[in-house]
Nucleic acid binder design. Structure first.
Lengths: 256, 256
DNA sequence: AGGCGCTTGTGAAGACGTGCACAAATCGCG
DNA sequence: CGCGATTTGTGCACGTCTTCACAAGCGCCT
């Protein structure tokens, strides 16, 4: 059976797309695999083993195989995975075959940077609108887009099919903006404001808080310091750090 | 036993700091609790119940209680938690009692925004140096700090006790910068570049990839679309989304 | 054609994280 | 002083995620 069947691949619209309900942890890793695969493709590789890909993505190879097995069987035993095919598959599953329109609300410090970030465009997204509540910012042109007032959201939504809203406003404004996004039909929100958003069921919110990331690192710093600072208390000073140190989300990595 | 003992609180240096080795998932939530607590303190609350705090932080109340119980017993049954005391405790555990110096490498689009982000300063960090490899950027002043060349890192490290390095360079430069940071003794790195870093054991790396967050949201969009688009295939159309939809890291929330 | 080395896909076990439900503890009030 | 209302802290069961280890499958070489 060398006939690779994409279960609902872009071209051939089968009866049921049959998106297998992937474990959330797997979904979170797929983009990482995708990035690594693009690198490999650019480097001219046509196939890659789970060992090779997992190294490039910074994960355990067994984990990678299990993740990919959830998408279906796209590897060849004894050979590895077809890079191009796997890219196509992952992009399909992630819904990246269509370029999704993103509305970015809040054109302050961070919003400016996001508006100019080319990583969005190069990885399947298109910033469709820039919005802000501050009238003095409305009209400003950033990266070829004119900032519109946030109250124009209904108009924007009528022009474009907005898939995702990005909130880069101060915390105080975030909830109101979220409500406005939800009101025009946005069902996925990426929130950079340091606050909790209430949204109706069916709306997904992901949060990115830069300060929180630093605070987590700070904890580990504190811990490392409290360990190495031990002069002679009980256990012997450990030159190598104790096991179980590798964090869930943290690479701890092998040099070489 | 109403005598609250901080197990290694700032002032009283006990024999052993005894940082309880917290579950990583707990550590990741503590900053969120801390933020919620600061809000409560500003609003004049002196105590808060686990129910109230968990709502403000967007988590389950049982989870919150279990998380806090790992720090020790700082609540009072029938009353709740002392807001000020809990803030002090969490800040101690996270190592925020000392203001940590952060070196930011890469003053491009994103780096600029990070340099101007006041969320760092207000939550326990101090940007101690801005660095870039591009000579044309060296000398530029941002937010009162002059950009220095990345090769000056050893000098910077000699002046300041750098705790954390932030990499906001293009992916191609990230590994080299990481090596330089490690070389001057930095043991915690926050990486915004879309690539995997190799670092020696004992160095913690956390990664933030903005495009990945969008891609995860894209998956959920795709999935929601493939569900609602089902015309009449097998099962009946679900008006309410199926269970198991709430993601690990995603709030799905109640809009009252 | 057959065997050998390599790689995938997966069963099973263990570690980890979550959430319920309840006993223990504390406060306030009569 | 005792009782009831309230809230913490936690034992337990369940689900998810990770990791090992290995059988099954594939291609290549002889």
């Amino acid at each position: 059976m060398s006939q690779h069947r994409h279960p609902g691949a872009p071209g051939r619209a089968g009866a049921v797309p049959a998106l297998p309900d992937l474990p959330e942890a797997t979904v979170a890793r797929l983009p990482e695999y995708l990035r690594a695969l693009h690198n490999l493709a650019d480097a001219g590789h046509e196939t890659v083993s789970s060992e090779g890909l997992s190294a490039a993505a910074g994960v355990n190879s067994a984990k990678l195989r299990k993740d990919l097995s959830h998408l279906g069987s796209y590897g060849t035993r004894g050979v590895g995975y077809d890079v191009a095919l796997l890219i196509e598959q992952i992009e399909y599953v992630l819904g990246l075959t269509q370029r999704r329109a993103v509305a970015l609300v809040g054109v302050g410090n961070l919003g400016h940077a996001l508006a100019g970030y080319d990583g969005f465009a190069s990885r399947g997204f298109r910033i469709a609108a820039l919005l802000d509540a501050d009238p003095s910012r409305v009209g400003e042109e950033i990266n070829g887009l004119v900032v519109r007032h946030v109250d124009d959201l209904p108009t924007v939504a009528a022009e474009e099919s907005l898939a995702i809203g990005v909130i880069a406003t101060p915390a105080a404004a975030a909830q109101q903006v979220a409500d406005q996004l939800v009101a025009v039909g946005v069902t996925s929100i990426l929130n950079f404001a340091p606050c909790v958003l209430s949204v109706p069921e069916g709306v997904d919110v992901r949060k990115v808080d830069l300060a929180i990331e630093l605070q987590i690192l700070s904890f580990h710093e504190h811990r490392k310091a409290s360990l190495t600072a031990l002069p002679a208390t009980g256990g012997s000073a450990l030159t190598a750090l104790p096991g179980g140190f590798a964090a869930t989300d943290t690479q701890e990595a092998i040099g070489t």
